[in-house]
Design a protein around this nucleic acid. Structure first.
Lengths: 123, 123
DNA sequence: CAGGATCCCAAGTGATACTG
DNA sequence: CAGTATCACTTGGGATCCTG
């Protein structure tokens, strides 16, 4: 599907190349999902957080999607999933050490979100 | 289509509500496109930047998509489009003052991207 | 060179029902 | 409570061709 991932070496050596080794591209592989950043922002502020609480906070997300996004973050080593053998079941999510490295970026984005709202109230 | 945007007031008053007024949600409205962050990252590092240069850096993007993403960023007040009346035509893109407020977030994401790569080389 | 105009598809989501 | 399993569908983005 992906046309070809062959990298033009001549261009790789050019410092202006923004190909697959670009740090931003790598970051986007992790936080690229539609809900990932909101999820991480919630978990960051309240850690750990249960499945049901996350669902309530996201309000428009469906369970299926929420589960999928959380699984991907877990697979990528960003969050940790802890299951408690109780009835009713309880599952808590928290940031891993690697995930915590995203906190500065998340906070910076929130800062921008506020600034943007202040500058353009009608968006 | 959007089920309903009616907001449960009881929940709005709850400090744990992460609804439509969440700063992260607002930020995502702006940087939510597939290429937006990469584009902004490129323009940040080399400003101003021409259309053709952006296209080369993104390498896998099509012209149509590139144009669309740039237009959206322009509409949202993040970048500025400057047309030079020359032949062949020249169009340059640069960050607006509002757009520059995204720089810390972009840099933080790049930092994370590098850290992530170092921690998990095989992703 | 920097787009505009179309057509089109698959991935990502949503809705719904069921379960340990 | 915290999922899993299907099915259906929207839409962002890709391919392609055309133009001032």
């Amino acid at each position: 599907m992906k046309k070809d991932t062959i990298i033009d070496l001549q261009r790789v050596e050019n410092e202006s190349f923004e190909g697959n080794n670009c740090p931003m591209t790598n970051a986007l592989k992790i936080i690229g999902g539609k809900w990932k950043l909101q999820l991480l922002n919630s978990i960051r502020k309240e850690c750990p957080l249960r499945f049901g609480e996350l669902k309530r906070k996201m309000q428009d997300i469906t369970q299926a999607t929420l589960t999928l996004q959380l699984r991907e973050l877990e697979r990528d080593g960003i969050i940790e999933r802890k299951i408690y053998a109780e009835t009713p079941p309880r599952v808590e999510y928290k940031l891993t050490e690697l995930g915590k490295k995203l906190i500065p970026a998340i906070e910076a984005l929130c800062t921008f979100g506020d600034a943007y709202c202040a500058a353009r109230p009608n968006n």
